[in-house]
Nucleic acid binder design. Structure first.
Ligand SMILES: [Zn+2]
Length: 455
DNA sequence: CGTTTTTGACCGGCGC
DNA sequence: GCGCCGGTCAAAAACG
């Protein structure tokens, strides 16, 4: 394959590193007011996770609800304030003064916070806009000089062979990411040395292969982007991407192949992404003792989408799944976002800076096993499907931050063991609980992670 | 009995 | 041209 790519096909890898610090910052500040109260609950939950880790669904649902409440809290502030005020009035005169003083202070404080919050929010919006503009420009530039690759890197998403060179590249590149990702989300992150930090991401990579003769035409339409949004927006984004992908499909039927490779911790032979697949072949790859399995989408008769699944040879618990092509049909309800990722290909290319080829995309097992993406989910549709802007749920380091399910890494001894129950230690769970909340925002797309990948 | 998996044959690209 | 290799086909087997 590698040879193929080198020669016959041109691969453009565009990497946009989006860290959106602003957003994160804002988020943190904005949410802190509420999180402080909830942190305890979260931790408790984390503990629960420790013991019975298999009730992912359950937890997710709960946490999801929680999360929404959390979001609502901002609006609820006013009410809260008033209520407090009323309460104060009912207090005895003695205390009254003190209380009212405190109240005033608190109120002013709150107002201040609100203002700040708004400012930050605006900042975020601005940033997003800017980013989008940049993205567009980038696309334009890409158009213009697609012959001179900016950061052309050839990588393969699968196969033992491609782990060599790309790996280096990834490491260097990811070095940057880590530094960003770490501060961003993992404030409590402790495990980290570089290697581990690498895993921070749930990054998804997409490659576009252009048929030689189609280079020019297809190139024009291609824009690769990484975007990160607030996690709840991610859904919308994903959906948008899906929809976009589908529509564009009809217009522009797969004249280019997209590839998405996903790494997930998964014990089963394949991860259940909600799509229907028929196995049509199996081969042992050269460098890897583990056989590679080839599947074809059977959801619709003529669907060209294929996927290949192979265990990572470095860590057998990791399953590398590479999706290729674009579905010619809507995905079934309950299909994984991953499975649909390819549909985003035509419009948005996601590239993991880290270049997927080797390690960038890792999704916790539970995650990979039960992600529903709900194509056409009402929730998703609500969120604002038309933003042209968007992002891919599966993108970059920043996203990875968002999904940050990666935080935890432990010893290296856990190869081959990915216990049904949470194998990891407590502090990790702390983190995971937090991240799970984040993840939950993506609810239908991602599920609460119970295991994590480390490398 | 229809569908999926298994598995060796087959094919095309590529390097030598 | 030959052999290697990744990928696919398809007949047979397994499955439900
Ligand atoms: Zn399909």
């Amino acid at each position: 394959m590698s040879t193929k790519k080198k020669k016959g096909e041109k691969i453009k890898i565009m990497q946009v590193d989006l860290s959106l610090k602003m957003e994160e910052e804002q988020k943190r500040r904005g949410d802190d007011e509420h999180h402080e109260e909830e942190e305890e609950e979260e931790e408790i939950k984390a503990d629960e996770n420790d013991e019975g880790s298999d009730d992912d669904d359950h937890n997710v649902v709960e946490e999801d609800g929680e999360k929404r409440e959390d979001e609502n809290n901002k609006e609820g502030d006013k009410e809260t304030k008033r209520e407090v005020g009323q309460d104060a009035k009912q207090e005895k005169p003695m205390v009254d003064n003190i209380v009212s003083n405190e109240l005033c202070m608190l109120q002013t404080e709150m107002d201040r916070m609100k203002e700040e919050n708004e400012l930050l929010r605006k900042a975020v919006d601005r940033t997003m806009k800017d980013y989008y503009d940049l993205q567009m420009k980038f696309a334009a530039v890409q158009k213009a000089d697609h012959h001179q690759q900016r950061e052309p890197r050839v990588f393969l998403s699968l196969g033992g062979d491609d782990n060599r060179e790309p790996k280096r590249a990834r490491e260097t590149i990811e070095g940057d990411h880590q530094e960003q990702a770490k501060p961003l989300l993992l404030s409590n992150y402790r495990g980290g040395d570089t290697k581990e930090a690498k895993e921070l991401g749930l990054s998804l990579s997409l490659q576009t292969f252009e048929e030689p003769h189609e280079k020019d035409s297809s190139m024009k339409e291609l824009a690769s982007s990484w975007l990160t949004l607030e996690s709840n927006k991610l859904q919308a984004a994903a959906t948008a991407a899906e929809l976009a992908g589908i529509t564009s499909q009809s217009i522009n039927p797969a004249n280019r192949k997209t590839r998405v490779s996903v790494r997930a911790r998964c014990q089963g032979p394949t991860m259940n992404d909600g799509c229907q697949w028929r196995k049509y072949g199996q081969k042992v790859a050269k460098g890897n003792p583990c056989p590679r399995a080839y599947y074809r989408c059977t959801v619709a008769p003529g669907c060209p989408v294929r996927k290949q699944v192979q265990r990572c040879l470095e860590d057998m618990s990791i399953l590398i799944t590479t999706y290729e092509g674009t579905h010619n049909h809507p995905l079934p309800v309950g299909a994984t976002a991953m499975a649909s990722t390819t549909s985003a290909g035509p419009n948005y290319m996601l590239m993991s800076g880290a270049n997927s080829s080797s390690t960038s995309n890792i999704i916790p097992e539970s995650f990979s096993n039960q992600i529903h993406s709900s194509y056409l989910s009402p929730y998703l549709l609500n969120s604002s499907p038309n933003l042209p802007t968007l992002n891919s749920f599966a993108s970059s380091p920043s996203t990875s931050g968002i999904f940050d399910m990666s935080t935890n890494f432990q010893t290296h001894n856990m190869k081959y063991q990915w216990p049904a129950n949470n194998p990891f230690s407590s502090n990790k769970d702390e983190e995971s609980s937090k991240s799970s909340n984040l993840v939950v925002k993506l609810d239908e797309i991602f599920m609460h992670p119970d295991t994590f990948i480390r490398h």
